[in-house]
């Protein structure tokens, strides 16, 4: 019980911190009321999850990001099957871009794995904070494996917005629907981006590759509420060009750990003062 309460408190804190993230989503969501018979069938709950994809502007941002990822994979000489596989298995835009760009620039498997692992640590707190929303007393861990796999920044934000409107016993299946819907959108976008990079004149191909840095920069800037996040973003941008002169193969890791630690130090120092 204490653990559950703790979890709920944490969820509240996250919601507060990221409250700004959800207000770009202004479209009306017409989910049935909590006591509606619509929720009685799990299949229909899944369908409502699937349908909710069309109510989020974040799906558009995801679409643009994955167009960029498809194009990036093409220009880094990966196969279409490979990049679609990475979308299904990895299901985290930043990790996919790190994977493609580190492997594409000649890093070893171990170097790429370390860079991906470090970037993916942020998924840990996301999963931790969403679980209290999904769980019922009867829920087993294995029921949550697929839902946990779908957790990435978009689904995580959407869970906070949509799950309170879903009866608790249908939340897992609703999340599966939402996750499958977003994954389908992203698989389409990956394929289109890959095809466009292969066939478009250089002018537009350059434009599609530019989607990735723009979408990531702006969505990270948007999610940066605390001093430590803003500093980490600015310092991370500034330090990478310096670290890249070292040519270690893990330059991104070096600049990331240094910039992140300085940003955390500033946060710690300010809390103390």
């Amino acid at each position: 019980m204490t653990a559950l309460r703790l979890g709920l408190l944490d969820a509240g804190r996250v919601r507060q911190r990221y409250a700004g993230t959800t207000h770009i989503v202004r479209l009306h969501v017409a989910l049935p009321p909590l006591d509606s018979p619509n929720w009685q069938s799990p299949l229909r709950a899944f369908a409502w999850g699937l349908r909710s994809v069309t109510t989020t502007v974040l799906a558009l941002v995801l679409f643009a990001t994955y167009l960029g990822i498809g194009a990036l994979a093409h220009d880094s000489h990966f196969s279409l099957g490979w990049v679609l596989g990475s979308t299904i298995l990895v299901w985290a835009g930043p990790a996919q871009i790190i994977l493609i760009s580190t492997l594409g620039s000649g890093a070893t498997v171990v170097q790429a794995a370390i860079a991906v692992a470090v970037s993916a640590i942020r998924l840990f707190p996301m999963v931790v904070s969403v679980l209290p929303l999904l769980r019922t007393p009867e829920t087993r861990r294995r029921h949550l494996v697929l839902a946990a796999h779908f957790i990435a920044v978009t689904l995580w934000v959407e869970c906070y917005r949509l799950l309170p409107q879903v009866p608790r016993e249908r939340r897992i299946v609703f999340t599966h629907g939402l996750g499958c819907g977003l994954l389908t959108v992203c698989l389409f976008a990956t394929t289109i981006g890959y095809g466009l990079a292969a066939n478009l004149p250089q002018l537009f191909a350059a434009g599609i590759l530019m989607l990735t840095p723009l979408a990531f920069l702006l969505s990270t800037a948007r999610n940066s509420r605390q001093l430590s996040d803003v500093l980490a973003l600015v310092l991370g941008l500034a330090l990478y060009p310096l670290a890249s002169r070292l040519h270690t193969g893990v330059d991104i890791l070096i600049s990331g750990i240094v910039a992140g630690t300085i940003a955390y130090g500033a946060h710690w120092w300010r809390e103390r003062a």
């Binding site: 980490a232 991370g236 941008l237 990331g256």
Partner: peptide
């Protein structure tokens, strides 16, 4: 903070 800075590094690299 480290995860954000790594992502910033990826943006800078591109």
């Amino acid at each position: 903070a480290v995860a954000t800075a790594i992502l910033a590094g990826v943006i800078a690299q591109i």
